[in-house]
């Protein structure tokens, strides 16, 4: 009788402590992780031996799709208390960039629909985008599915003057160069973040490893023209024994 009792007792392990530890770890990972951004096209970055990490604030990400479509995303400062100087939270960054870029577009195309306050607020909450200016307002007003569909199947941000004509006629404009980049530079300067523009870490170009170089080259040329000669290419990590 006594023997059996002892055996029974030894098989039960108290899992409470274990559970405590796992919950702690879980909370840690949940708080420290930031989720992967939804990207319109999946690209696999090429491997590189470089171990320098991409900056997680004040970054303009330019994504080059496998067929050369260009998408953009903006990340502001980590500091969100906008009463401080040199602070530009992501949402505000996006809102101001879209306002500036769209007003540049409207000054050249007076017939274009106006961008309302709610549109701007909505854009601030969105992620990566890639639509030509003429579709921007209607794109913001769409449902999530329609939006994703248009980003995926649309033409991306027009970046090359020689790209095929827009359906409605002759306005072949390099919108990346003419509206978006000046808007980014303008907004950063307004918030006294000008030194980050030439620091070399503002623009991060991401392209798939099987993308022909010509598409990446178009983006590079555009950045050069905008005097953003220094930028980074996003890569995935590769270990090199004889580094």
């Amino acid at each position: 009788m006594g023997k059996v009792k002892v055996k029974k007792h030894s098989t039960i392990i108290d899992m409470t402590a274990m559970s405590d530890v796992t919950v702690l770890l879980l909370t840690f990972f949940m708080l420290t992780s930031t989720f992967l951004q939804k990207e319109p096209v999946q690209v696999v970055a090429p491997p590189s031996v470089s171990d320098e990490k991409v900056y997680d604030e004040k970054v303009v990400q330019v994504l080059v799709g496998p067929t050369g479509k260009v998408y953009m995303n903006f990340t502001g400062t980590k500091e969100t208390d906008s009463t401080k100087t040199k602070t530009l939270p992501t949402e505000k960054f996006r809102e101001e960039v879209v306002t500036t870029a769209y007003s540049l577009y409207r000054s050249a195309h007076s017939g274009a629909p106006a961008l309302t306050e709610t549109d701007v607020k909505e854009f601030g909450r969105l992620g990566m985008f890639g639509v030509p200016m003429k579709d921007l307002v209607s794109w913001i007003g769409m449902s999530v599915e329609e939006r994703d569909k248009l980003t995926k199947e649309g033409e991306g941000i027009p970046i090359d003057e020689n790209s095929k004509d827009f359906p409605n006629g002759k306005n072949k404009v390099n919108e990346f160069q003419k509206y978006w980049l000046p808007a980014v530079i303008n907004v950063l300067q307004k918030h006294e973040l000008g030194e980050d523009i030439r620091g070399g870490h503002l623009v991060a170009v991401k392209a798939g490893k099987d993308t022909p170089f010509e598409y990446v080259h178009i983006v590079m040329e555009n950045l050069q023209t905008a005097h953003l000669n220094k930028f980074v290419l996003m890569t995935s990590f590769k270990s090199e024994k004889d580094r």
Binding site: S48, L233, T235
Partner: peptide, 13 residues
């Protein structure tokens, strides 16, 4: 999440 980067500096235009 954090991808690595390669720095690149192009000559001016």
């Amino acid at each position: 999440l954090k991808s690595a980067t390669v720095e690149l500096a192009l000559p001016t235009n």
